[in-house]
């Protein structure tokens, strides 16, 4: 009897250790999903690829691109696409300008986040130069013109339809404003 109990206890401990390892591995996996997701998106051609290409411009399909812009909640600025609609060619280059306007009397740090529709466009369009690569610091009331330069890959399919490249401008402090607001409301309620 005791030998059985002892045997069991050892076996149980071994099993539990293995299961615990599995738990830790899965916890690691959940965090690993963050970089994995980015890699996966790049493979699927969903996320922007920032590597420059040097394809020689070749005349190809007419490709229409719509440029769109948005400002996230609470960022005191305006962004306007100066070339809202442009035509390009497969294998060719395209430049588009945006106007950023700081509405505030204080300096403003922002970052523009690009997004494509349809998603598959990312595979055929690359940004050679983009104001979204870096954070942008605007002086009070500054109006600045910024540009994006796109290269269309030569295998751009004619069936893709118009591509929309949309930018959303976020404040550099991200979601902090709201968190601060929450913290304040808690502090207030506590008093």
């Amino acid at each position: 009897m005791t030998s059985l109990a002892l045997q069991r206890q050892q076996g149980n401990r071994r099993t539990a250790r293995r299961l615990l390892l599995a738990v830790l591995a899965m916890l690691g996996f959940s965090f690993a999903m963050v970089p994995f997701y980015n890699v996966f998106c790049r493979v699927m051609g969903i996320q922007q690829d920032r590597t420059a290409v040097a394809d020689a411009p070749v005349a190809g399909w007419q490709q229409q691109v719509l440029f769109d812009s948005n400002v996230a909640a609470g960022v005191p600025m305006q962004i306007r696409a100066l070339d809202a609609r442009r035509e390009g060619h497969a294998g060719g280059l395209m430049k588009a300008r945006f106007e950023l306007r700081n509405l505030a009397d204080t300096p403003l740090g922002v970052r523009a986040v690009p997004s494509y529709a349809p998603l598959s466009a990312v595979r055929y369009v690359e940004k050679v130069q983009c104001f979204c690569f870096d954070a942008i610091h605007l002086a009070p009331r500054e109006v600045r013109e910024v540009t994006v330069v796109l290269v269309f890959k030569s295998d751009l399919p004619a069936t893709l339809g118009p591509i929309t490249l949309s930018y959303t401008v976020f404040g550099l402090d991200g979601g902090k404003q709201q968190t601060t607001a929450t913290a304040q409301s808690i502090a207030k309620a506590a008093t």
Binding site: V23, L24, M26, F29, S30, F31, M33, V113, G174, G175
Partner: peptide, 29 residues
């Protein structure tokens, strides 16, 4: 055993996004 840690990870990321300035789920970062 396989998925409860994943949920724990997800809500932990949420927590750090809320309070510690991480940007797991925030397009701005």
């Amino acid at each position: 055993i396989a998925v409860a840690p994943v949920l724990a990870g997800a809500v932990t990321m949420l927590l750090t996004d809320r309070h510690f300035g991480t940007h797991f789920f925030n397009a701005a970062g």
